[in-house]
Computed example of a mutant assay.
Amino acid sequence: MKILVAIAFILILASLGSALYYMMRQKGKNDQRMVRSLAMRVGFSIALFIIILVANKLGYIQPTGIR
């Protein structure tokens, strides 16, 4: 489960980096690639949140809390 969360987090960061690259490269032209990259980042973030909620509910991960 930790590997799945780590992969999702890496995908989120890669999508954000891709959007930054397209934003800096196109300078106000057609920003479809940047918008698509940011939309994918939002989708990956929502998917990661849902995966964490489901994994917690099924008992795959346990909250530890602060001691």
Rank of each mutant, 00 (worst) to 15 (best):
M40A: 12
F9C: 14
S18V: 00
A47G: 06
D31L: 15
G59R: 05
A6S: 11
K29M: 00
R67L: 08
K2Y: 03
L58T: 15
M1G: 04
I61S: 04
L58C: 13
A19K: 05
G17N: 11
A39N: 00
I46N: 02
L20Y: 12
R36Y: 13
I12E: 01
I52Q: 12
M24G: 13
L11C: 14
L48Q: 11
I61V: 15
M40W: 07
I7N: 07
R41D: 00
G17W: 03
A39T: 12
I51K: 04
M40C: 12
G43F: 07
A8N: 05
V35C: 00
A14G: 05
G65S: 06
A14W: 07
N56A: 06
L58R: 14
Q32K: 11
L20I: 15
K27Y: 08
R33E: 14
Q32G: 07
S18Q: 09
I10T: 10
S37V: 01
V35S: 09
Y60T: 03
S37I: 02
K57E: 11
F44V: 05
Q26A: 12
M1E: 08
R36M: 12
D31S: 08
Y22I: 01
M34Q: 12
I52V: 15
A14D: 07
R67K: 14
S18F: 10
Q26M: 10
A47S: 07
I51Y: 08
G43V: 06
L13R: 15
K29T: 05
I50M: 12
I12N: 03
A6I: 09
S15M: 09
R33S: 06
L4N: 13
L13G: 04
I3K: 06
K29G: 15
Y60N: 06
R41V: 09
Q62G: 01
M24N: 11
M40D: 10
L13N: 09
G43L: 08
L11N: 09
M34N: 11
I66K: 11
D31R: 13
V54N: 05
R41N: 12
R41Q: 15
Y60M: 13
F44R: 00
G59A: 08
F9M: 14
G65A: 00
G28N: 03
N56F: 04
L38C: 08
R67M: 06
F44A: 03
S45L: 06
R33M: 14
V42C: 03
L38D: 12
L11A: 15
A55H: 10
M40K: 12
S15I: 02
K57G: 04
M1S: 11
